Simulated scan of single mutants.
Amino acid sequence: MAGIQSEYHRTQHIGWLRAAVLGANDGIVSTASLILGVAAASATQSAVLVAGVAGLVAGAMSMAAGEYVSVSSQSDTEQADIARERHELATDGARELAELAAIYVRRGLDTELAHQVATQLTAKNALEAHTRDELGISDAVSANPLQAALVSALSFIVGAGLPLLTVWLVPYASLTPVVAGTSLLFLVMLGGLAAHMGGAGIVKGIFRVTFLGALAMACTAGVGWLFGVAL
């Protein structure tokens, strides 16, 4: 109907939002953990900074490559299913129409109405109807490998840059507590922002991001301290 505007749904951004949160979280946690581990092993401030920069570059490339390969595999699976559905529509349209109608019956429509809906949607765009309602694939949530790779790499760089900036600015004597404290603050901010953008509870989002990040940093610092003592 004219005048009806499309509603905003958060799932429209689920692809890049997931990659952004994952990249930023990994950037903060892995880089801060690396910094704390190297610092705990009694390394110099310049060595800690070099290790952090190397971790940033390696992590960003790894995140981009990993996201691209992972999401490409998902996209390949989706395209294979769509190609199979296209072939089945071309070779056995009647069975596919009945299959689509059966889906609507299971969702609560009576048989006659379900058949009418299936017929009308098939007449408009049969492949789109089957892709969405049979396969569960839509434009809003379909895989985009390049987008996921770029967003993940950029967000990793931003996340990793925060603890690196802290190392560069603070005196070496207070490096460990300041990096740990600021990194936890960054994780709190990330958890809250991600929860807000995803429509989830703020407290829950902050807790699950911050707790696991703190655990990772503590474990890495412990490893660095043990090696530092051994050396």
Rank of each mutant, 00 (worst) to 15 (best):
M1A: 11
G3E: 12
G3Q: 10
G3Y: 10
I4G: 00
Q12H: 14
Q12G: 03
L17K: 11
V21N: 06
G23Q: 08
A24R: 07
N25T: 06
G27A: 08
V29T: 12
S30T: 14
S30C: 05
A32F: 01
S33A: 15
S33E: 10
S33V: 06
L34G: 07
L36V: 09
G37Y: 12
A40E: 05
A40D: 03
A40Q: 04
A43S: 15
S46N: 11
A47T: 14
A47R: 13
L49T: 12
G52A: 07
V53F: 13
V57S: 04
A60R: 08
M61Y: 00
S62F: 00
S62N: 08
A64C: 09
A65P: 01
G66K: 05
Y68K: 00
S70F: 10
V71N: 03
S72Q: 13
S72T: 14
S73P: 00
D76F: 08
D76A: 13
D76L: 08
Q79P: 02
A80S: 15
D81Y: 10
I82V: 15
I82A: 09
A83L: 08
E85V: 09
E85I: 07
L89V: 07
T91P: 01
E96Q: 15
E96D: 06
A98Q: 13
A101L: 00
A102E: 11
R107W: 02
G108C: 08
L109V: 02
T111C: 07
T111L: 12
E112M: 06
E112F: 04
H115D: 00
V117G: 03
T119G: 06
Q120I: 13
Q120A: 13
L127A: 09
E128D: 12
A129Q: 08
H130I: 06
T131N: 00
T131W: 01
D133E: 14
L135W: 06
G136D: 10
G136L: 05
I137F: 13
I137W: 13
I137M: 07
V141A: 13
S142R: 15
L146I: 12
Q147G: 03
Q147S: 11
A149T: 02
L150K: 01
L150Y: 09
S152D: 06
A153H: 04
L154F: 15
F156Q: 03
I157R: 04
V158F: 15
L162A: 13
L162D: 01
P163G: 02
W168S: 11
L169W: 12
P171L: 10
T176Q: 14
T176V: 15
T176E: 14
P177M: 02
T182G: 00
S183K: 01
L184S: 04
F186I: 00
F186G: 06
F186N: 03
M189L: 14
M189S: 04
I202L: 15
F207N: 00
F207S: 01
R208Q: 14
V209A: 10
F211C: 05
A214M: 10
C219D: 02
T220H: 04
A221G: 10
V223L: 12
G224L: 00
F227L: 13
G228K: 05
G228R: 06
L231W: 12
